[in-house]
């Protein structure tokens, strides 16, 4: 009897210690995140002004305008390339390929390998293949091509996971009504998998926005006075702008690097929000 009670008390204490440990870890994570965000935003936001946001670039404004535009171009266009390819590839892997298929093994190997390669290697590949061999020069186009390949594995593996996690009973329901495989995939499976596919897209956006190594050699570190939509132009993205400013010797360039960081964070929030909205409409998941 006595032992039972002391045992119980011991267990209660253990569980309390464990709970506070978990809580502590959670708070630590949130705390670090908040600290980083505040650190950058508090130092960066006061330095942001209209000149910096929308003005011409020169050594006094250090304007980020052309870099902002290039970043958005980079996100939108490389997603336009990789998302369809990645999702179709995932559909093939998850829905059509039979088990033990050789092609599947090769694709999986390629995806896993691509996912593990450091981005500087993509940069070198882009430099040799797109910039030199295909003659795209250092340009936004070369950057987009390189980035598209880099994010493909993320899109494929998250889409494949999402498609696989759609319960078979939905497929059976659709096929049982006389729908074809194709219709079942596009009308039932993909809409249901949309949130998972989306989380892959958001991850990919994070990689594009934060990428420097793969872009320095391909889209370059050049900064234009005014933004351009010309894909053949060489123009740095926000992350590279920040990197360059941080290592530049001008008296106010450190401050402007923080301002760029703040804008980067805001761009990420905005794009994620827009993606979620768009896919909500695509997925027409009315689970309310």
């Amino acid at each position: 009897m006595d032992r039972n009670i002391s045992n119980l008390r011991q267990r209660k204490i253990k569980s309390a210690i464990f709970k506070s440990l978990v809580w502590l870890c959670g708070m630590l994570t949130v705390g670090i995140l908040v600290y980083i965000l505040l650190f950058i935003l508090l130092r960066g936001i006061p330095k942001i002004n209209m000149e910096f946001l929308f003005g011409q670039y020169n050594t006094t404004t250090l304007s980020a305008f052309s870099s902002i535009v290039a970043t958005v171009q980079m996100i939108v266009l490389s997603l336009l390339v990789s998302v369809p390819i990645g999702v179709f590839c995932a559909i093939y892997l998850a829905e059509y390929a039979t088990r033990g298929n050789k092609v599947v093994k090769i694709i999986r190997l390629a995806v896993d390998t691509l996912a593990g390669i450091p981005s500087i290697v993509y940069g070198l590949f882009g430099l040799i293949f797109f910039v030199k061999i295909l003659g795209f020069r250092a340009s936004i186009l070369s950057g987009i091509c390189t980035i598209s390949i880099m994010i493909l594995p993320v899109i494929i593996s998250s889409s494949e996971e999402a498609i696989k996690s759609v319960p078979d009973m939905y497929r059976e329901g659709s096929l049982g009504l006389g729908a074809t495989r194709l219709r079942t995939v596009f009308r039932i499976v993909l809409p249901t998998a949309m949130p998972g596919i989306l989380s892959g897209v958001i991850l990919a956006i994070g990689r594009i926005v934060g990428e420097t190594a793969a872009l320095i050699f391909t889209s370059g570190t050049n900064v234009l006075k005014n933004p351009t939509l010309d894909l053949h132009a060489s123009q740095r993205t926000l992350a590279i702008h920040m990197y360059m400013l941080a290592s530049e010797g001008l008296p106010h360039s450190k401050d402007m690097a923080f301002a760029t960081g703040a804008i980067l964070i805001l761009v990420v929030f905005l794009v994620n929000y827009a993606t979620t909205k768009a896919a909500g409409r695509l997925g027409r998941l009315n689970n309310e």
């Binding site: 939905y170 059976e172 049982g176 009504l177 006389g178 249901t192 009315n286």
Partner: peptide
């Protein structure tokens, strides 16, 4: 065939719509 011969499964499986 499946249009003419419909099926109801053991576990209710309405689509998420």
């Amino acid at each position: 065939l499946r249009r003419r011969v419909g099926m109801v499964f053991q576990k209710p499986n309405p689509f998420p719509m």
